[in-house]
Amino acid sequence: MSKQFQFKLVLLGESAVGKSSLVLRFVKDQFDDYRESTIGAAFLTQTVTLDDQTIVKFEIWDTAGQERYKAPMYYRNANCAVVVYDITQASSLDKARTWIRELQRQADPSIVIALCGNKTDLTARRQITQEEAKKYADEEGLMWFETSAKTGEGVSEVFTAIAKKLPLSAPSSRTNAARGTAAARQGVDLNRQTTTQGSNEACNC
């Protein structure tokens, strides 16, 4: 029988860089040209099956990017974070850097962080070069990707790559499961977990 693991993933980044669109593409393989901006946080799940038949289930928290919401710590206990910027907005990389600094300071030290430049379909309006972002990611030891939620280019690769990088061995010995929710645990083995909280598979936004 194939192994199953469950991880908490949080999406962060400036407003309007395409966080919700990225999730919608990943979870439902859809794209919506006129999405309302997220005012809050939505919870979704999606699974990724790796080559060795290991199944990784992501519990995804899509959060609001607007500055005026003093964003609460949705990255608390997250196993991985996708920090998104818009390749056509120079300022969005600055905001991404701010988020990454905060994650490095406040989040779980073992967190896997992926930096993701979205909107490659608008390459004509590109303001952030691949070299610049890649260099920054290398310096900080982050994974780096470019995607287009609109065309779907590179989207599933981000999540698959994260799934591969996550520690799929024995669950961590750290006892951050005090709250008892599956989300709070590191790499929960679903085969051993008969009931899991929040089994909604579909988008609820």
Partner: peptide, 15 residues
């Protein structure tokens, strides 16, 4: 200033 978080059971959080 502050942000209130309204949670919908089995659904979204609103700010």
């Amino acid at each position: 200033e502050c942000t209130l978080i309204l949670h919908t059971a089995l659904g979204k959080d609103h700010f």
